[in-house]
């Protein structure tokens, strides 16, 4: 159900942005879903639609893209994809990372040198790529 709180955040941020920039209430919002946060796209899309229905006068279309996570070790410089370390996570640990992606540092290590000091270069979580008037 975390998808609902994320969807609320997107709708609020996008409409605030549109209001601030003097847009009419017809907008297209492009959203990036970072792999690390493991957002269920179907539930998230449904939540966006339901929340948008409750807004008066707004017509919002959504474009949702997924972004693969890329991690880089700060100690040895090794880069890796999430799929290489994700399989070692328990269901509970994956759930914790779903809520707070940065907690990945408590549960993941560099596959090359075992350092816990790594950078989440791409695909951390949710972000709004663009809001356009249509």
């Amino acid at each position: 159900m975390h998808e609902w709180s994320l969807a609320q955040a997107v709708v609020k941020a996008a409409t605030d942005f549109a209001n601030k920039n003097g847009f009419k209430k017809r907008i297209k919002v492009s959203v990036l879903l970072g792999e690390l946060q493991q957002i269920d796209k179907e539930i998230f899309t449904h939540a966006l639609e339901e929340i948008t229905k409750e807004l008066k006068d707004w017509h919002i279309t959504y474009e949702i893209k997924e972004e693969k996570a890329k991690l880089k070790c700060r100690t040895c410089g090794f880069e890796w994809n999430l799929s290489e370390t994700k399989k070692r996570l328990s269901e509970k640990q994956a759930e914790f990372i779903h809520f707070i992606p940065d907690i990945a540092h408590s549960y993941m290590q560099c596959p090359n040198c075992k350092s816990v000091d790594f950078e989440i270069k791409k695909g951390r979580g949710l972000s709004i790529a663009s809001v356009e008037e249509i």
């Binding site: 914790f96 707070i100 907690i103 540092h105 408590s106």
Partner: peptide, 25 residues
Amino acid sequence: YFIEDKPAPLRGIDVSNAIIELLAI
């Protein structure tokens, strides 16, 4: 609730992100 008995070796940017996430949810 999220780290249980594990350490949280977070750099500044990670701490900032985690705080904002926790406040938002």
